[in-house]
């Protein structure tokens, strides 16, 4: 056996081993980590949802040029963040997923994060392909429609996923005081 062949065989073995490990720890059937989509964050890094495994996730879909509902949704997210971080130091990721990838480039998202003072590592601004965005929105039952070049109508839902990626709670609407959402997050991080 020549050396290169040995290396290749070794490589294959390692690969197979990797996959069988993956098969041994199955992802929950209802987990969003089942989605193989690839996303770009505000620092221009690419990631998959399953990279976030182990974190409780607070997710909202917005677009940065939004004048009406999104500023309120962002304010709700910040309020939830403030309430939760005063109670626990556990890792929780706050995801703001854009529904307008044409406008919301990573640079744009970074700008938005700065403007809104959302700079800690807990904040993730994601953009991706239109297709991936639609699939992710559908997992959360979020509806949206582009109604003019810079305007979308969309549902106002904040979704909470547990550390296995399973949807646990949804806060709908713009008039909530977030207390139930915060309570739910605390239950998930400190069972």
């Amino acid at each position: 056996m020549t050396k290169p062949t040995q290396y290749i065989l070794l490589l294959i073995l390692i690969l197979i081993n990797q996959f069988s490990i993956a098969e041994k720890t199955p992802i929950n059937e209802m987990s969003i980590f089942q989605l193989p989509s690839v996303w770009i964050n505000q620092n221009n890094q690419s990631l998959e949802l399953k990279d976030l495994q182990g974190n409780v996730l607070v997710v909202v879909m917005i677009y940065t040029s939004c004048q009406a509902a999104c500023p309120k949704l962002v304010a709700h997210m910040k309020n939830i963040y403030d309430q939760v971080s005063s109670k626990t130091k556990k890792e929780i990721k706050y995801l703001l997923v854009s529904i307008d990838p044409d406008t919301d480039t990573p640079e744009h998202l970074k700008e938005f994060a700065k403007k809104n003072n959302m700079l800690s590592d807990n904040w993730l601004f994601l953009t991706g392909s239109k297709e991936n965005i639609r699939v992710f929105a559908n997992v959360m039952g979020t509806k949206y429609k582009k109604i003019s070049p810079l305007e979308f109508s969309h549902s106002n839902i904040i979704s909470i996923f547990d550390d296995k990626g399973v949807l646990q709670y949804q806060q709908e609407g713009l008039h909530s005081d977030n207390s139930n959402t915060v309570k739910k997050i605390m239950e998930l991080v400190m069972p």
Binding site: R134, A137, T142, K143, K145, S153, S155, E172, G173, H175
Partner: peptide
């Protein structure tokens, strides 16, 4: 899911 006649978006402003 671009159709807004729906049960879940009842609290949307418009």
């Amino acid at each position: 899911n671009s159709i807004m006649i729906s049960g879940e978006n009842r609290s949307n402003n418009d």
